[in-house]
Amino acid sequence: MKTAIILFNLGGPDGPGAVKPFLFNLFSDPAIIGLPQPLRWLVAKLIAGRRAPVARTIYDHMGGRSPILPNTEDQARALEAALGPEFKCFIAMRYWRPRARDQVAAVKAWQPDRILLLPLYPQFSTTTTGSSVREWQREARRAGLDAPTTTLCCYPANEGFVEAVVDGVRAGLARMDRARPRVLFSAHGLPKKIVSAGDPYQGQVEQSVAAVLARLALPDLDWVICYQSRVGPLEWIGPSTEAEVIRAGADGVPLLVVPIAFVSDHSETLVELDIEYRELARQKGVPDYVRAPTVGATPSFIAGLVDEVRRAMASGRPIVSGEGPRLCPGDRVGCPCGETR
């Protein structure tokens, strides 16, 4: 049975000229800025214009482009090799090429018997997986792509994902001296109002960290969950990664920073964590600063995705979570698994 797997990710500019339109696509998404049109269009245009020069400087550190597409392609090829010839991966980026519309056409031409929507976001948010799924569904309807489709909404405690993170933590700890470090589990932040409205992301980040800590089995570990990449005037969930770096300097403790919600490298890891926060740590007197790797296309992470694919394909349900019908408390109304209860 031919199965098309759609790998969702954020996307990133593939050159300096793509930075401004990428930002416009990002900020014109109603899941990001919930204003009605045409006001949202105008605000997105304004923000993209203002942020483009700073963003180009960020991408200059990475050769003028984001590495997220080639990194995702590596994951796609590894997943195909693990699953076998009846499975084919298609990459659908939310805010830059390849977009859902192009990939819907490619999937339709391949004529699969079934489709699995697989986000490369282990933790569900309405702003990431939710937005990508809605765009895919819209484009699939427009193109008349009607193959039976299952959505894997989240897998925050997937064994392969957790094992890959734990391996990264252990490798990072091995690079540090005998001083007792503090581990920062850093995730992309969200405005508080989105979480308060029922988005399950923060709770699922906490599930991921709890699973990692259980597998590490280091009872005296000094650790904290924090959130990075804040933009705009709204209040965001915290504590912020920046504030935790400053606190570590005041406490005189070394830091191991662990990306817990990013599965491949891009600007948030290669620039924000590796350059900006590293320099902040130096300025604030943090005695050592080490960043653990993302899970990438490591065998354990790919094996975890294989498990999720096979579980989802056997479920017979349109929306599947990593651990059954619903991972989130009932007040997390943004959790899509509630639609299938």
Rank of each mutant, 00 (worst) to 15 (best):
V286E: 08
G203F: 09
P239W: 05
Q37H: 14
S125A: 14
V271W: 13
S186K: 14
F8S: 02
Y289A: 05
M176K: 08
P156N: 12
V290C: 12
G203C: 06
W41E: 09
L190V: 07
P70N: 11
P148T: 03
Y59G: 02
F185S: 08
T340P: 03
P13G: 09
P329F: 11
G249D: 12
V107D: 00
G232C: 08
A312I: 00
I194E: 10
F161R: 00
Q228G: 09
G144W: 03
E235A: 14
A140L: 08
R77A: 13
P191G: 05
C154M: 04
R114T: 07
L270D: 08
T72C: 06
P119E: 02
Q202P: 02
R94S: 10
T241C: 08
P287C: 09
W41H: 11
A143H: 08
A292D: 07
A44R: 07
R341P: 01
W236Q: 05
Q103H: 01
A44W: 00
L280D: 05
S125E: 07
D177L: 07
V107S: 02
G144H: 06
A314Y: 07
Q202C: 05
P299Y: 02
A82S: 15
R175S: 13
R101Q: 13
R215M: 15
P16Y: 02
V271D: 13
A217C: 10
I302L: 11
A31K: 14
R142T: 09
G316D: 13
W110T: 04
G34N: 14
K20G: 03
V290T: 14
P325Q: 12
G330I: 04
G172D: 04
R278S: 12
R317Y: 09
E339H: 09
M1G: 05
P148S: 11
S208Q: 06
T149K: 06
H188R: 13
E135W: 00
C328V: 05
P38N: 12
A303G: 15
L83G: 03
I275Y: 11
D307H: 10
